[in-house]
Amino acid sequence: MQNETFNEQDSLRVITEMIHKTKNNVIKKDFNEFLFYGYAVLVAAVAIYATVYFTGDPRFMFLWTAMCLLYLIKTFALRKPKPEAVTYLEDMMNKVWKIIGSMFGLTLLAMFGCSPLVGRIDFSLMMPLSIIYAGIGTSITGLIIKENSLTYTPLIGLVLATYMLLDGTYDNSWNLLFGVAFLIFMVIPAHICRRKY
């Protein structure tokens, strides 16, 4: 950059150009996290549904704990290098998902902690709660980046989660509902966003 004959018009041009460059970078997001977790849940849901259906053994539900393992691998082993620039929006989104992540962890801990009081460990509630937590995170992400497909599709997930909570007792169909919910509010909107941006 040359500094000779730098006048007021140039100042205005530089400020506008630089702010515009940063704005363009804000929406260059690949939504790979949404696709990674969305497809992982979808594949696991179909696989667990099929396993429980063909074996008749509901203990295969414990295969869902592999999602925790997947989260740990994604967070620590497949960690991306720090980006060159972190926008305020990206920072906000990262913090939102950290809170959502800790909600998952705390709920699991609470389920363990409360098990002596209720006399059993029941993780089935994790399914509707996970839909609600992930849906909240997706909706907030949609609001931050002003993307309606992310903001409103979690409402469908909320309906499915409410059905599960009212139904109260787990059955194998919950696995499919869980997979469908993630397909609707994570996978499909992520593909829409990738096409747009």
Partner: peptide, 30 residues
């Protein structure tokens, strides 16, 4: 601030939480 590069740096940083040296170099062309 009335310098092309310093103004570019501060304008770039205005819209981000933080940016590293390579980003500023790439965007400013300095």
């Amino acid at each position: 601030l009335h310098s092309q590069l310093r103004l570019a740096i501060i304008s770039l940083l205005l819209s981000v939480e933080e940016a590293d040296f390579n980003y500023l170099k790439e965007q400013s062309g300095a």
